[in-house]
Design a protein around this nucleic acid. Structure first.
Length: 511
DNA sequence: GATGGCTGCCC
DNA sequence: ATTCTGC
DNA sequence: GCAGAATGGGCAGCCATC
C-alpha cells in the first residue's frame, strides 16, 4: 500500500464532519489493508508514529524539500525510514536526522508531505484519533466496537490487535485479556467542584486522598517486577522503590495502581517538581534515589494471583488491595456507604480538610460498585482539588491555530509590581468560549502596542480573573514563579489594572 | 566546560 | 494537565 | 457522555555551539 492512500483517507476524514462518516472512511481503508501493513496504517491514522521517539519534531522539519510529482512511497518504506531515524544517535545526529528526514520528504508528494508534517508534529487535526481508529477497525471486520476497544486496552497496542483481527477475524478478540507484565491504560477521573457535589453524583462511595506525584502501574510476577507510567512507558529501572514495594506485597502475582511521591524529613510531601525530576532521572538512579527517596502508595489492584479484577466492583478490589499491602502502602481512605447521611458528609468534609492540611493535593471520590474502566475517564471517579483565583492583567496574546485560527488565543498574564509595572507569570488559553475568543480578539486589537510574528503586545489595561491549582517555581518567568493549570474564569471589565493582584501575593503562595 | 535549543513525557 | 465544542 | 482540539510549565537527556 502507498502512503498516498493514507494521506488521502486522512484528508477525507478531516473534511468529513459526521462521526459515522469518519468511521466509514477508516473502515474502508482498513478493509483493503493487509494484516502485515495494518499495524502501521492504524497507528498513522490514529495520529501517531509507532516509534515512541524519533528525535525529530516541529523544529527539525524546517523548510520542506520540493515534493515528488507522483506518489511512489510505500507504507513499508515510510515505516522503515522512521525506524532508521529513531536509531540515529551520537555526534552528528541532528544533521543526520535532518538529512534522512529530507530524503523521505523528497520522495513524498505535496499531499503526503502535508500528512507527514502533521504526523511528525503530533497534530493530525483530522477530528479522529485512537477511538475512531478502533471504531473503524471494528466496522471493517464486523466486530463489536466495545469488544475491540477492550482488546486494545488489554492486549497492548492498537497495531497488534488490528493485525490479529485482520488475519483471523473477530475470533481473535477472545485472545486478548489482562496479563501480568503487559500494562493497561489506567483509569482516569473526572473533576467535581466540591466533595458535596461528588457525593451527590456517586451514591455509595469511598473518599481517598489524592497525592501529587507520578501515577504508576506495577506488575509483579514473583520476583519479576515492572513499573509503568500513565502512558505505559516502562520506568522500572528509575523507580527501585516502587519495585521493592511490590516485591513485599503479600501476593505471588499482582497488578497494582498507585502514585509515587516524596516526603520531606518533616513528613510533608515534597513539591511535584522534585518528584517529577527524580522520576525522569535515569543516568544515576542510585544517587538520585539517595538524594530524594520516593514513596509509593497504592489505591487499586487490577489483577491478583491469576484473577482478573477489572470488572469487580471497586469495593471488592479495595478489599483485595488491603489483604496484600500494609496500611502505610495504601492511600488513606474513608468509606461512605450512605452519602446522604449528614454526619457522614461532615466526616468527609473533615477528611478532605485534613488531607489538605497534611500538604496533599485533594481527594478522589470513587463509586463503590464501579469496575475499573481502563483507558477511560470513568464517571465513577471524581477528583476534587482546591481552586485559587487571581485578578491579573493581559500583557499580550498569541494568534491561535486550527479551529482558533484568526483569533487571539493564548493570553500572556501579568501581576502588578509595587512600582506599577507588570511581571509576566505565564500564559493561558483555557476556559475561553468561542464568544470570548471573538470578544478578546477585538478588545486586545484596540489595546495593541505592537504586532509581532506570534501575536500582539498590548497596553496593560485589561484585567482578567484567572483560576489555577497552585504556584510553582519557574526559571522562565522574571519573578521566579508561575501558575499551575491557569485558566480564564471571566474578564473583569469593572476592575482597573491598579487593582490587579500583586507579585507579592503570588510568591507568598510558594512553599 | 558552560550554555541553550529541542524532544519527550510528567502533571 | 483543563476547558470547550460537536456529535 | 465521549472524543478531540487547543495549548500550559517543568524537568532530564541529547546534541550543537561557543
Amino acid at each position: 500500500m502507498l502512503l498516498a492512500d493514507i494521506a488521502q483517507t486522512s484528508a477525507r476524514i478531516t473534511e468529513a464532519s459526521g462521526r459515522n462518516e469518519k468511521v466509514a472512511l477508516l473502515a474502508e481503508l482498513f478493509g483493503r489493508t493487509g494484516p502485515d501493513e495494518v499495524p502501521v496504517v492504524v497507528t498513522y491514522l490514529a495520529g501517531r508514529l509507532p516509534q515512541r521517539r524519533t528525535g525529530v519534531g516541529w523544529s527539525t522539519l524546517g523548510e520542506l524539500p520540493p515534493p515528488a510529482a507522483r506518489p511512489t512511497l510505500t507504507i513499508a518504506e515510510t515505516d522503515a525510514a522512521f525506524a532508521a531515524l529513531a536509531r540515529v544517535s551520537g555526534k552528528g545526529a541532528q544533521a543526520a536526522r535532518k538529512r534522512q528526514l529530507d530524503a523521505l520528504l523528497e520522495r513524498a508528494t505535496e499531499d503526503e508531505q502535508h500528512f507527514l508534517v502533521r504526523l511528525i508534529g503530533g497534530e493530525l487535526r483530522q477530528g479522529a484519533l485512537d477511538a475512531f481508529a478502533v471504531e473503524g477497525l471494528a466496522a471493517a471486520i464486523g466486530a463489536e466496537p466495545g469488544e475491540v476497544r477492550r482488546a486494545v486496552m488489554l492486549g497492548g497496542s492498537l497495531g497488534t490487535v488490528a493485525q490479529a483481527l485482520l488475519a483471523e477475524g473477530p475470533a481473535a478478540l477472545s485472545r486478548f485479556g489482562l496479563e501480568v507484565g503487559r500494562p493497561v491504560l489506567p483509569m482516569l477521573a473526572h473533576t467535581a467542584r466540591s466533595v458535596d457535589e461528588a457525593l451527590d453524583k456517586l451514591g455509595p462511595c469511598a473518599v481517598e486522598e489524592k497525592l501529587d506525584g507520578i501515577r504508576v502501574q506495577v506488575h509483579k510476577d514473583g520476583d519479576l517486577v515492572r513499573v509503568y507510567t500513565r502512558t505505559l512507558e516502562e520506568i522500572t529501572d528509575r523507580l527501585p522503590e516502587a519495585a521493592e514495594a511490590a516485591r513485599q506485597a503479600d501476593a505471588g502475582r499482582a497488578v497494582l495502581d498507585g502514585e509515587v511521591i516524596a516526603l520531606g524529613e518533616d513528613g510533608w510531601p515534597r513539591p511535584f517538581q522534585e518528584v517529577s525530576g527524580r522520576v525522569a532521572s535515569r543516568l544515576d538512579v542510585a544517587g538520585a534515589s539517595s538524594e530524594l527517596p520516593l514513596y509509593p502508595v497504592f489505591f487499586d489492584v487490577l489483577s491478583l494471583d491469576g484473577e482478573d479484577l477489572l470488572e469487580k466492583p471497586s469495593v471488592q478490589r479495595h478489599a483485595a488491595l488491603a489483604r496484600v499491602l500494609p496500611e502505610e502502602r495504601r492511600v488513606r481512605r474513608v468509606p461512605v456507604p450512605d452519602p446522604q447521611d449528614e454526619r457522614a458528609r461532615e466526616a468527609v468534609r473533615g477528611f478532605a480538610e485534613q488531607v489538605l492540611a497534611r500538604g496533599h493535593e485533594g481527594v478522589v471520590v470513587k463509586a463503590l460498585d464501579a469496575g475499573y474502566s481502563a483507558g477511560r475517564r470513568g464517571a465513577s471517579w471524581l477528583k476534587v482539588k482546591p481552586v485559587h483565583t487571581l485578578d491579573l492583567v493581559v500583557l499580550g496574546a498569541e494568534w491561535g491555530h486550527g479551529r482558533r485560527a484568526g483569533k487571539l488565543s493564548n493570553l500572556h498574564l501579568g501581576a502588578r509590581r509595587e512600582d506599577g509595572t507588570f511581571a509576566m507569570l505565564g500564559k493561558t488559553f483555557k476556559g475561553l468560549t468561542d464568544a470570548l475568543l471573538t470578544w478578546q480578539t477585538a478588545r486586545l486589537g484596540e489595546l495593541s502596542l505592537e504586532d509581532t510574528a506570534w501575536g500582539v503586545r498590548v497596553s496593560p489595561e485589561q484585567v482578567v480573573e484567572i483560576a489555577f491549582d497552585g504556584v510553582q517555581r519557574s526559571t522562565r518567568y522574571p519573578e521566579g514563579v508561575t501558575l499551575r493549570f491557569a485558566r480564564v474564569v471571566r474578564y473583569r471589565e469593572d476592575k482597573r489594572p491598579e487593582e490587579a493582584d500583586t507579585v507579592e501575593t503570588v510568591t507568598a503562595m510558594l512553599r
